[in-house]
């Protein structure tokens, strides 16, 4: 029986979701831009997605109770986590491989057919990585805030917009390969930010009004509870403000908007994981858990011995 409220996923998993989603979307975006004939936003952008996925994977491993056994997460093909782990590995590898095509000294840099194959596979695996945290959470039947397909749309939108923002940041901060790209990328980011705002408002509205009492209570934490300040900061600073900044004529403002979007994406994951930590209570369970003594386990163990 769950004996302490600490038995929840921690911040490292939330940050893993953030980096993996952003990285997966960045890899997918790089592939889509290549197919569209627009090229890389910068030489570094091709690698950025792979690096982000790698950071996410590292955090996922550190979150495990037994990090040295991490290889075992690849062994159950029926589990969503395993599916996600394989796709993260493939997307990171493909993102890295795709980035090497921008290196002039790479012998395969001119092999267009190979580049298209890598880009195509990168798009598929990258989009899966962008969406999979949402799929993972949506399957939790007894976690009122997560359950249902709506959360997939929230995670996919956030991953895509943070992935685009990563490209915009690379474009702004590093030597650009194709300056024409800023316009289309900014427009896409603005559309996704607007969608993100609408999806979140709709999600909260549905959870509060059309769901169970537990769903309403979970959503209430974001509206007026302990997570309200963070949620307001996410909506205002991580969505609305970037919506106004990205697409401005000034590259500095666009880069600032992209930076805020990325920060907002991380905050969104932390809030979502936190909002889902309460299960649907069983009859009488809530008062039982409230009465459990906590924090004395080490003393009690020593005393019993």
């Amino acid at each position: 029986m769950e004996s302490k409220h600490g038995d929840n996923w921690g911040w490292m998993l939330a940050v893993d979701f953030f980096f993996a989603g952003m990285g997966g979307a960045a890899v997918a975006t790089a592939g889509i831009l290549d197919f569209a004939g627009l090229g890389l936003t910068s030489a570094a952008a091709g690698f950025a997605g792979a690096v982000c996925i790698g950071i996410g994977a590292l955090l996922l491993i550190l979150e495990l109770g037994k990090p040295l056994r991490a290889w075992r997460v690849f062994t159950n093909p029926k589990a969503v986590l395993t599916f996600g782990a394989w796709n993260m590995t493939l997307a990171a590898g493909l993102g890295f491989a795709f980035g090497t095509f921008a290196l002039p000294f790479a012998p395969w840099a001119g092999v267009i057919a190979l580049k298209k194959i890598v880009a195509g596979l990168g798009v598929i695996t990258g989009l899966i990585v962008a969406a999979y945290p949402g799929v993972l959470l949506a399957r939790h039947k007894a976690r009122p805030f997560w359950h249902g397909p709506g959360i997939i749309a929230l995670f996919l939108t956030s991953s895509l917009v943070t992935g685009l923002s990563l490209h915009l940041l690379c474009h702004a901060l590093l030597p650009a390969a194709n300056p024409v790209l800023m316009g289309p990328l900014s427009i896409a980011a603005v559309i996704l930010l607007a969608l993100q705002l609408v999806f979140w408002l709709g999600y909260i509205l549905v959870k509060r009004s059309a769901g169970t009492e537990y769903e309403a209570a979970a959503a209430e934490r974001l509206v007026s509870g302990d997570l309200a300040a963070g949620f307001l900061a996410y909506l205002a600073g991580g969505t609305l403000l970037p919506l106004l900044l990205i697409g401005q004529a000034s590259p500095v403002l666009t880069a600032l908007g992209a930076l805020l979007t990325v920060g907002g994406g991380a905050l969104m994951r932390l809030l979502t994981i936190k909002a889902g930590e309460y299960r649907t209570w069983l009859p009488g369970e809530q008062s039982f858990r409230a009465r459990l003594a906590r924090g004395d386990e080490a003393f009690m163990t020593a005393w019993a011995q």
């Binding site: 029986m1 769950e2 004996s3 302490k4 038995d7 929840n8 996923w9 979150e63 495990l64 109770g65 037994k66 990090p67 056994r69 991490a70 075992r72 997460v73 589990a79 986590l81 399957r139 939790h140 039947k141 007894a142 976690r143 299960r279 649907t280 069983l282 369970e285």
Partner: peptide, 24 residues
């Protein structure tokens, strides 16, 4: 075989699992 990822703890609707010493 358990890596302590807590996926089962989070998915159990009955709160019937707990982590201890890195495993479930």
């Amino acid at each position: 075989k358990c890596v302590g990822c807590k996926a089962c703890i989070m998915s159990c609707p009955y709160g019937a699992r707990a982590s201890h010493d890195g495993v479930v």
